[in-house]
Amino acid sequence: MKVDLTVNGSQHAVDVADNALLSDVLRETLGLTGTHVGCDTSQCGACTVHLNGSSVKACTVLAGQADGGDITTIEGIANGDDLHPMQVAFRANHALQCGFCTPGMIMSAIDLVQSADEPLGADEVREGLEGNFCRCTGYHNIVKAVLDAQANM
């Protein structure tokens, strides 16, 4: 099956199996291994990317459903050496430990902040990240990081 995707600003025409997932295409076909897969029931959120501007779990989107879509992954949010404010905030607030959930967490957090009409409070950040599991940080510093990044986005 032919699928056209724009990924991090580059256009790709890929030939994939009909049952390929978007996460398979990103990781295996395009070599973008920053999008991680942590579960098989669409809950952990480690595979979160932006599809047409919204956060989605790439392990729960068929490649065919993403045809013609514009996708941003963790590899595509920095502007050259200039990191995205969310990336900066995650490091500055020690919001990651093993780093495995981090790409998905950052992609969700960016969408959360961008979708908010008004500045988010801590409780809203906690609720807003319910689609992403972290086993290392207890989320404490992730919440701090998102609030911190919000001021710079």
């Binding site: 973008l32 920053g34 999008t35 991680h36 897969v37 963790i74 490091r91 500055a92």
Partner: peptide
């Protein structure tokens, strides 16, 4: 001190076993 290892993790450049 902010962590050295974060540079690769926040940019998706970590190399976990399944990435190899």
């Amino acid at each position: 001190v902010l962590r050295k290892e974060d540079a690769r993790f926040i940019t998706g450049k970590g190399q976990y076993t399944d990435d190899i």
